Simulated assay, not measured.
Amino acid sequence: MPNLALLDYPGASIAAVAGLQEMFTYTARLHQRDDLPDIALTTGAPPKTPPDAVILPPAFGNDAYLTPPKNLIDWLRTLPETCLITSACAGAFYLGAAGLLDGRNVTTHWALEHELQSRFPKAKVDTGEILIRDGRVITAGGLLSWIDLALELIAHFSGPAIMREVGRHFVTDTGRRDQRPYRAFSPPMNHGDHQIEQAQFLIERTFAAPIRIAELAKTVALTERTFLRRFERATGLTPLTYVQHLRIQSAQRALESTPAPVEQIAYSVGYENAGAFRKLFKRHTGLSPSQYRQRLKR
């Protein structure tokens, strides 16, 4: 009989905890209907007997996940290799504190990417994905990604047919999603390099215009070579990639809030070739401009 432990840690999302309980309660009913082995979800503190899977739900409205209780971290470290260890959103910080993310491909909420990566540099963080499974560790990104995580666990323990039936009952897509359409570009501004900060502010005001590295470097009193090296060190991006992120984000806002044609939006954010803009937009968001507008409009 599969036993899953949902850890209701201080600051965990009440909605996520309740939603996970309901999804697994319904799954248990399907097991009874089909005469399958029972599946049980216990909620609260770590159980004395190691479970078959552990779930760290998202946090909501607090940053308590940054200082997880030592007893919980120690318990996570004792779990056998046969136990699936999973998290959604900020729950990944618990796994990181226990050393369970080291060397693994993982995800979390896109807004927590830099914090997770800086605290646990051995992890390979990719917030483009909404769910990543690497060995016995499954991480999900986004505050509502507990739904994707629940479906993944149900597919693992109950099979894909029951997982899809659960999806139909709760009216939720059972296919794989990603976070790229929802990610906002939030470049680091607290890196301490004041000349690069000055360049960042200038780029944010003029990103729709052609980028000229030599002029940017001159404006902040640096040689072009020094400027390029320090810019990438401070932001993690080349100036050209930085500008592309700003342009795509501006285009996303226009697609969400205006009926303007794609060609007009492309030109307004700095692209004369609408075809090139469409390719770049899909590379960043996973969707074409028209698909993005369709998904986000009400």
Score class of each variant (00 low, 15 high):
Leu4Tyr: 08
Asp8Asn: 11
Gly11Val: 11
Ala15Thr: 07
Val17Gly: 13
Ala18Gly: 11
Gln21Phe: 08
Tyr26Ser: 06
Thr27Cys: 05
Gln32Arg: 15
Asp35Pro: 10
Leu36Met: 13
Ile39Pro: 07
Lys48Val: 07
Lys48Tyr: 01
Pro51Lys: 14
Val54Glu: 08
Leu56Val: 13
Phe60Ala: 01
Gly61Arg: 09
Asn62Val: 13
Tyr65Arg: 02
Pro68Val: 05
Lys70Glu: 14
Asp74Ala: 15
Asp74Leu: 13
Leu76Ala: 15
Thr78Met: 10
Pro80Gly: 03
Pro80His: 01
Glu81Leu: 04
Cys83Met: 08
Ala88Cys: 15
Arg104Ile: 12
Glu113Leu: 03
Ser118Asn: 08
Gly128Ile: 09
Gly128Arg: 13
Leu131Cys: 07
Val137Leu: 10
Trp146His: 04
Ile147Thr: 08
Leu153Cys: 02
Pro160Thr: 05
Val166Trp: 01
Arg168Lys: 02
Thr172His: 09
Asp173Glu: 07
Asp173His: 11
Asp178Ile: 11
Asp178Gly: 14
Phe185Thr: 03
Met189Cys: 10
Gly192Ala: 06
Asp193Ser: 04
Ile196Tyr: 00
Ile196Asn: 09
Glu197Val: 09
Pro210Ser: 05
Leu216Phe: 09
Ala217Arg: 04
Thr219Trp: 01
Val220Ile: 08
Val220Cys: 00
Leu222Pro: 12
Glu224Ile: 00
Phe227His: 03
Phe227Lys: 02
Leu228Pro: 12
Phe231Leu: 03
Thr235Asn: 12
Gly236Asp: 08
Leu240Asn: 10
Thr241Tyr: 11
Tyr242Asp: 14
Gln244Asp: 12
Leu246Phe: 06
Ile248Asp: 01
Ile248Gly: 00
Gln249Phe: 00
Arg253His: 04
Glu256Lys: 00
Thr258His: 03
Pro259His: 11
Pro261Leu: 12
Tyr271Val: 02
Asn273Cys: 03
Arg283Ser: 15
His284Arg: 14
His284Asn: 13
His284Phe: 15
Thr285Met: 01
Leu287Ala: 01
Leu296Phe: 07
Lys297Glu: 14
